[in-house]
């Protein structure tokens, strides 16, 4: 079943357009939304959540995202996680609970305990990682089946990031939730995601299963620009690197498997060169 279906999502600003963004996320999968700063990741997520008026269609488990039935199925945590810093965790939980008929205090306090969050503490005293986990606890307590997270790992230290990735991974395994998260930390993607949507300048450049994407390309190192071919030719030290099709062979050219970071960087260079 499709957890999230985004069709032709478009948002026009005077200096930027989110242009016809379409992708799907299957139930129980994790999808990473990646792209350079200003590529349109947050705009896409806000458009899905209805925080900004957009053109196009968004369906959540087959229900239009704008309908009141869809919102309880979604848990959203925007960048910064700065909600009500001076309030206690339990106060926020109590207030949020009134909006959801399926809210479970048992799940809420259970998840808080699991994540090591003291309900009596003020939100301001929680670490950034704990704040993200609080968002997850709130979402799961009202029965959210789809988590939409805007750069959940960007403010975290490596250990907290690892913990959060473990948590998300566990939630998908144990609770069967689906996750769409934006990030520019591709190591998180490699670790977590089943699929990747790469945005560049408001457009979807790649929409692929992570495994397929990694198997599509090789990274070639050419001795000169003249001999270089492939996507996104870029000088690195004394060689010129580019993405080539898997299976590419040429004498004097070293070929190896690229990292996800390298694929994203070279695709971005290729897009800029075309422009």
């Amino acid at each position: 079943m499709t957890a999230l279906d985004v069709k032709n999502l478009t948002k026009r600003y005077p200096s930027f357009t989110l242009d016809d963004v379409s992708f799907t996320l299957e139930t129980g999968k994790i999808c990473g939304l990646v792209g350079a700063n200003g590529a349109g990741k947050s705009t896409t997520l806000k458009g899905i959540m209805g925080l900004i008026p957009t053109e196009g269609e968004v369906e959540i488990f087959g229900i239009p995202a704008s309908s009141p039935e869809a919102k309880p199925l979604v848990g959203y945590a925007g960048g910064g996680f700065r909600f009500y810093a001076q309030k206690k965790v339990k106060t926020l939980g109590r207030v949020v609970s009134t909006f959801y008929p399926k809210w479970s205090d048992e799940i809420f306090y259970g998840k808080l305990k699991l994540f090591g969050i003291d309900a009596e503490k003020k939100i301001s005293t929680l670490s950034e990682g704990m704040k993200v986990k609080l968002s997850l606890a709130l979402a799961l307590s009202h029965g959210a089946r789809l988590l939409i997270l805007d750069e959940p790992t960007s403010d975290l230290d490596p250990v907290s990031r690892e913990e959060l990735c473990d948590t998300l991974s566990d939630l998908v395994q144990t609770d069967g939730v689906s996750v769409l998260f934006s990030t520019h930390i591709t190591s998180d993607l490699s670790r977590l995601a089943d699929g990747v949507v790469l945005l560049a300048n408001g457009k979807v450049v790649v929409r692929e299963r992570l495994e397929t994407l990694l198997q599509t390309y090789s990274l070639a190192e050419f001795p000169s620009r003249e001999t270089a071919q492939g996507l996104g030719v870029k000088r690195v030290g004394n060689v010129f690197r580019s993405l080539v099709s898997r299976g590419f062979v040429r004498q004097g050219v070293q070929v190896r498997e690229p990292s996800l970071d390298e694929i994203i960087v070279h695709l971005e260079y290729e897009r800029r060169a075309e422009k």
Binding site: L51, K71, R82, Y84, A85, F99, Y100
Partner: peptide
């Protein structure tokens, strides 16, 4: 400062 309007708009309202 608390991101109140954004938070409120993510609630089922």
């Amino acid at each position: 400062e608390n991101g109140d309007l954004t938070f409120s708009c993510t609630l089922p309202v």
